[in-house]
């Protein structure tokens, strides 16, 4: 048994490794993975790398152009833009890094269960899912943030919940494709329970779709998080955040170009990187992503 189990788990690792290598072998995948990796590294090591304290104001050095000392210049409060850009993605990455798996877990499981259950329960639950999807997501987010504040303890579950809802639909649709196949009928005929069928028969076949979907939802979640900051409802001011920096920098755009351009490049490169990687992942796994993209 142990031999079989070992062979199995090593097979799984091997598959993951193979997929990763295949993703990296595609031009878009290589670019995407390195961008994402770079940003994660930067967020992790940023605090030890930044040349200046991100909060340190200097009234004498407001809105300076790039120089050797401040190579992206300074903002309207005299803070070093480069340092702030380097740390501006930390909050976003932490929050979305926690909320994305949360969304995938709850959305994925609910979708699988509904897909398997079918019938009246499925029908009724999908009406509620439809109702949630019809609500403007950003508005729900804004209302909750306004009421409960912007701490991570609020943002993570909120984002996780909201972004899990479209995943329910995706997981359910993917389950429907699998469930009509005979190996599910075979498992049912053998008398396996619903949980076993979900875990053993369905999940391995839906996992790829969920992974790609999760990667994409991650980028959308980052977008939502930054939009929130940009609108002034997100990260509280002294903390550096790209969305917030772009909102602030816009006013002084003609004076301190890098105050906008820095965070713009940083945020865009991260999101584009995630999407390129997700696209390559979808191709490597043989999933057509575009057909299911907009839900």
């Amino acid at each position: 048994m142990s031999g079989v189990a070992q062979a199995r788990s090593s097979g799984r690792m091997q598959r993951l490794w193979c997929v990763l290598r295949d993703v990296a072998a595609r031009p878009s995948g290589a670019v995407g993975l390195s961008l994402v990796g770079f940003h994660i590294l930067l967020a992790a090591l940023g605090p030890w790398l930044v040349p200046y304290d991100t909060g340190a104001m200097s009234s004498g050095e407001m809105l300076e152009t790039p120089s050797m000392a401040h190579w992206m210049g300074t903002d309207h409060l005299g803070r070093d833009i480069a340092s702030r850009v380097m740390l501006g993605g930390r909050e976003a990455l932490i929050v979305t890094g926690l909320a994305t798996p949360l969304a995938m877990l709850w959305g994925g499981f609910t979708g699988l269960a509904l897909g398997l259950a079918g019938g009246r329960i499925d029908e009724a639950m999908m009406r509620i899912v439809d109702a949630f999807l019809s609500l403007p997501g950003i508005l729900i987010l804004l209302v909750l943030v306004m009421t409960f504040g912007t701490s991570n303890a609020v943002l993570v579950p909120t984002l996780g919940f909201l972004f899990g809802i479209p995943i329910i639909r995706v997981a359910r649709a993917a389950t429907h494709e699998v469930i009509a196949r005979d190996f599910v009928a075979a498992a049912r005929a053998r008398g396996h329970g619903a949980m076993t069928i979900i875990a053993v028969e369905l999940l391995p076949n839906v996992r790829d779709t969920l992974m790609v979907e999760g990667a994409m939802r991650w980028s959308w979640m980052l977008l939502a998080f930054s939009s929130l900051s940009f609108l002034g409802f997100g990260v509280a001011p002294p903390t550096p955040d790209w969305g917030l920096m772009i909102a602030d920098g816009r006013i002084y755009m003609s004076l301190a170009l890098w105050g906008v351009l820095g965070p713009v490049i940083a945020l865009s490169s991260l999101i584009v990187g995630i999407n390129l990687a997700a696209d390559a992942l979808a191709k490597s796994l043989g999933i057509d992503r575009a057909r299911k993209a907009v839900i």
Partner: peptide, 9 residues
């Protein structure tokens, strides 16, 4: 993928 406020800006 580029955020709307980025392209707008």
């Amino acid at each position: 993928t580029i955020p709307e406020f980025v392209s707008a800006t």
